[in-house]
Amino acid sequence: MLQLAAPLLTALLLGSLYTLMALGLTMTYAVTSIPNFAHAEFVTIGAYIMAVAVNFGKLGLVGGLASAFLFAALVALATDELVFKKLAALGATPLHLLTASIGVGLVLRYTLSIVADLKGLLSVKTRVVVNPVATIGQAYLTTLHLWAVPTTLAVVAVLHLVFMKTKIGKAMRAMASNLDLARVSGINTTLVRRVTWVIAGGLAGVAGGFWSVYSPINPETGWVALLWIFAASILGGFRSFYGTVLGGYVVGFSESLGITFLSRYLGVNVAYKPMIALLIIVVVFLWKPTGLAEVTPRGLLESLKKAVGR
């Protein structure tokens, strides 16, 4: 068990960060039907804002995260207002929107590259020291675990309450399940749309902020992580809030534990690591064409019963 502690703790942290990144992607897809490839850039922007705010603005961890949230949220809102909303009004299909998001991604990523290049910030890390607070064998629980994991869980809990209890949350769910019906029911779809993008961008920004504490960042940080973000979201069914939370942790755990096992006991080359999350996507979809969203505890129990019954 001691041997498992290290990959488990890593998985916990990575899973939280992937979840935080993927939640926004799922929300914007569910409410506005945009497979947003530019979502990765919100992560990078948040990471940079955090690093600049903490290293140069002396804002501290909370201040840094807040500014990361704010700025990334603004950029996300701006992209929707300027690009996606117009395109959607023109009747663009999801694949058209996806293509547009590739364009938006190019614009954001390389604008950031120009600024980072000129400012000498091509590689930067937020100056917040991560320290171990407890060690179990070779595994260590760090201060970052204590910030990032509870933050993610708190975000999930708050969003749960928002979706369940508040008017705007219910409106979001309504728009996600049927846009036209939502519109006829008198929901202010414009407002809901804006709120969705603000939350989505902001969460990506916060995730980026944590990432810049975790590891040095560069203008392509988010882009490099994009496939993992999509993996988390798509595993959860791409439209499901709880599915995404599950997806994020599945990606984190499978990758960390998976390669540790394969490498330790089967001698598999560690360089195969990036294949694991991708293979899981393929396998899950061949098994459940709608992703993990459809997998409920009850459903699992039933299939188990069937298997035993046989």
């Binding site: 897809y29 497979p35 694949l95 798509i234 791409f238 293979l279 393929v282 064409p289 992703g291």
Partner: peptide, 9 residues
């Protein structure tokens, strides 16, 4: 969209 991402993988 699912197919797109799965094939991307």
């Amino acid at each position: 969209d699912f197919l797109a991402i799965v094939l991307l993988a």
